[in-house]
């Protein structure tokens, strides 16, 4: 399975102690050049460079056509009332995800919103960090033995990255994971 990641996702994920979980789920995660350009901190850049060297992350250079499609999607987001507007990096991720069937890794609300209302994007699979953690637990990439362990992992992510999961989504994720893991804890 392949993925394409945007900036919001990567800069939070890079802070997480168990960030290698990502590469248990995905063979390769694409990082568009326009995403890389938005990263400035030494820690995040070092992680990205190291994983590109290991070919776990791969720099993705969009074609002029893909860039045009992303620009059109940005313009379109401005034409739809009530949604958060897109910028080129997350729009590119949606375009690439749609074209190649890659999972789009993003925390961007605009990307989530536009996927919900634009029919051509309805087939694009978007995962936030919450879905990545959920799938990691379901696939046994991280060992959990009950609700306590599931909550502890999700709390750890929130604590280490200073990222917060919406409460309802968090509880839904915990319920879903518990269907796959033995009860205990």
């Amino acid at each position: 399975m392949f993925a394409v990641a945007d900036t919001c996702f990567l800069i939070d994920w890079a802070r997480f102690g168990l960030r290698d979980l990502l590469f248990g789920l995905f063979e390769v995660v694409m990082v568009p050049e326009q995403v890389l350009a938005e990263v400035r901190s030494e820690d995040t850049l070092r992680w990205l460079a190291r994983e590109m060297g290991r070919e776990k992350l791969q720099l993705f250079t969009p074609t002029p056509r893909q860039l045009e499609e992303a620009q059109a999607l940005v313009r379109r987001s401005y034409a739809i009332a009530n949604i958060r507007k897109l910028d080129i990096p997350e729009a590119l991720c949606l375009v690439i995800g749609r074209e190649f069937g890659y999972v789009v890794l993003t925390e961007n609300r605009g990307a989530l919103m536009i996927r919900e209302v634009v029919p051509e994007l309805s087939g694009v699979v978007i995962w936030r960090s919450l879905e990545v953690l959920k799938e990691s637990m379901k696939k046994g990439l991280v060992e959990v033995h009950g609700e306590g362990d599931v909550r502890a992992l999700l709390d750890r992510y929130q604590r280490e990255t200073l990222h917060i999961f919406p409460e309802e989504d968090l509880e839904n994720a915990i319920r879903e994971v518990l269907k796959y893991v033995p009860r205990g804890g």
Binding site: T7, C8, R40, S41, K85, N108, S129, Q158, I164, F165
Partner: peptide, 28 residues
């Protein structure tokens, strides 16, 4: 609205996200 706020700040995205966290506001 992260993108609009970032544009107003004049910072690149990661710098603005760092600032949000320094201001006590978690992302997500």
């Amino acid at each position: 609205d992260l993108r609009l706020a970032q544009r107003i700040s004049g910072l690149v995205l990661e710098e603005f996200v760092e600032l949000i966290k320094k201001a006590g506001i978690r992302t997500g």
